[in-house]
Amino acid sequence: MTSDLRNPLKRARNIGSAKSGAGAWMAMQFTSIALAALSVWFVILVLTLLRSDYATVRASIGHPVNATLMASFIILVCWHTELGLRNIYEDYIHTHWLGFWSVILTRLVLLLVAVLSVLSIVRIAIAR
């Protein structure tokens, strides 16, 4: 067994940035709190529309308040998912190129989901 006689600071240098952790942590906390409140609203909305017909559901989602809250919910879910998956990738994928492309692909897929979802909500709200 080889002993490493280097200073611990020397071993820690150049193994990654320690500058953006607080920002990512704050974003995760913000999205968690906002999603907790929006999830309560979403569950209540789904339960009230459970036995409704298509026109009623469409009119309810098309209401400006519900459309705004739904779009916010979708955007925050995608953002929170991206933050969480990026954290997992950074912690558990040790191959640099695989971690990099995993983050990029995740961002692209979640961006596509968010844009299509928000456009669908806007289309429902406008066609009301």
Rank of each mutant, 00 (worst) to 15 (best):
M1L: 07
I104K: 12
W97Q: 08
L108I: 02
G16K: 02
L49P: 04
D53H: 07
R123H: 15
K10Q: 08
A12E: 14
D91Q: 06
G62F: 13
A34I: 02
I33W: 08
S60R: 11
S20W: 13
L35E: 00
I104C: 11
L116S: 06
N7W: 08
T81D: 01
R13P: 05
V43K: 01
I74C: 05
L9W: 12
S32Q: 04
Q29A: 14
S3Y: 15
I126P: 04
M26P: 03
P64Y: 02
L76Q: 00
A24K: 14
H63F: 06
H96R: 13
R128S: 11
S17A: 13
L116R: 04
I104D: 10
G99E: 10
I74D: 06
D4N: 04
V109I: 15
T48G: 06
L45Y: 06
H94A: 14
V122G: 04
W79D: 09
N87R: 08
F100T: 12
N87H: 13
A12I: 15
G23Q: 08
L111N: 08
R123A: 11
W41L: 02
M1K: 11
L49H: 01
N7I: 09
Q29F: 09
N7P: 00
N66W: 05
A125N: 05
L47C: 07
V40L: 09
D91G: 11
S52F: 10
M1E: 07
T31Q: 00
K19W: 12
V57E: 03
T68N: 08
I75C: 04
A114Q: 01
F30G: 03
R51K: 15
W79H: 12
F42L: 05
S3G: 13
W101P: 02
G23W: 03
R51Q: 11
W79N: 12
Y92S: 09
V46T: 02
S3H: 15
R13G: 15
H63Y: 11
T56A: 13
A37F: 06
V109W: 04
S117R: 05
I44N: 13
I121N: 03
V65S: 03
L49W: 09
L35I: 00
A127C: 09
C78F: 00
S60A: 09
A59H: 04
T2Q: 08
V57A: 02
P8C: 08
G84M: 03
L69F: 00
F73S: 00
D91P: 03
W41C: 06
I75M: 10
I44F: 10
E90L: 09
L47M: 09
H80K: 05
L49R: 05
A67M: 07
V122H: 03
V77S: 00
A18C: 12
S120F: 14
L76C: 00
S120E: 07
H94R: 07
K10H: 04
I33S: 15
I124V: 07
K19N: 13
V40T: 06
L47F: 06
E82K: 10
H94M: 15
L105C: 12
T31F: 00
L119H: 10
D4G: 01
L119C: 09
S117A: 12
R11S: 11
V40C: 11
V109C: 05
A125P: 13
R6K: 04
